[in-house]
Amino acid sequence: MTRRLVLLACVVLLALIPILNLLPDASPFHVSDFIVSICGKWICYAILALALDLAWGYAGILSLGHGAFFALGGYAIGMHLMRLIGPRGVYGHPILPDFMVFLGYTELPWYWLGFDWFIFAFAMALVVPGLLALVVGYLAFRSRITGVYLSIITQALTYALMLAFFRNDMGFGGNNGFTDFKELLGMPLNTPATRSVLFYASLVVLVLAYLMCAALTRTKFGRVLTAIRDAESRVRFLGYDVTQHKLFVFVLSAMLAGVAGALYVPQVGIINPGEFSPGNSIEAVVWVAFGGRGTLVGAILGAFSVNAIKTWLTSFAPDLWLIVLGCLFIAVPLLLPRGLIGLLRRGGGK
């Protein structure tokens, strides 16, 4: 009961941030624009962490390529945002985005069709990562690729996608990706109002995703997942279809990551192939590990706390951040196998 109250309090506190931003600068409760935008980003990261935790913490699928699903969701919404720029680009072409004019395209490639509708783009942010996860997951789980092998394959997947998206002739802006967005759903980006709307949208998605994952893990399906994580062969011998269970949760997780990416891109205003880099995916893994895998709250807590450390550290010693991150990777499995949550629970239990 108290746990729920604490969670509710946290959500309310987060929800207050954009409101406090409206207070005059002089007010002691005023929150800067920087805090609003960075908290918006962190909420998206938390959704990604939740998605990863669902796959890793509950079903034992350690994906080192969840950043790819995140980035694909981001690219889907980025394509919509590019279409909305319309003739306001540098080259002023009525249809084609700037980079296509620059690269000598004469017409929109077929796979860009439909992205002028928000609903379609948003659906794609779910469908494309979901489909990719379905194909990769089917191939991998069917041949019982588990554990580290799966991790390596997913890492190779995001690496290959990064290389592919760096190419100019992919039709996704190559090296530079998409940026210089103007508006979304009729609201100009980069205004406090839009920022608040995106912030609340992310928060609502986070809460909904949390509730969904919490409900899912409490069902029989969720329990089977946990059993698969702990003893896959035994569950298979008991007659459960392990492949289907894993596939379902992997696809769901990928779609959730896609939504996180779709919410992230309008807030940061840029998406480029760097988002696919294996380092990003593995950073997400450390959020979950640090917060406490196998607990949904832990994943969210991890995303917020690691990113808080990152922001704080990179402001005065950017060189040290990678060393600290590396040390987190080393310290968590050795000293904090259950993450921050495990530490808190143990402290509370005594």
Partner: peptide, 19 residues
Amino acid sequence: RPLETLLLTFGVGMVLQQV
């Protein structure tokens, strides 16, 4: 614990690279 080993060695790699 292979998955934990993977994370730990990744961390070592990160530290070595940055050093």
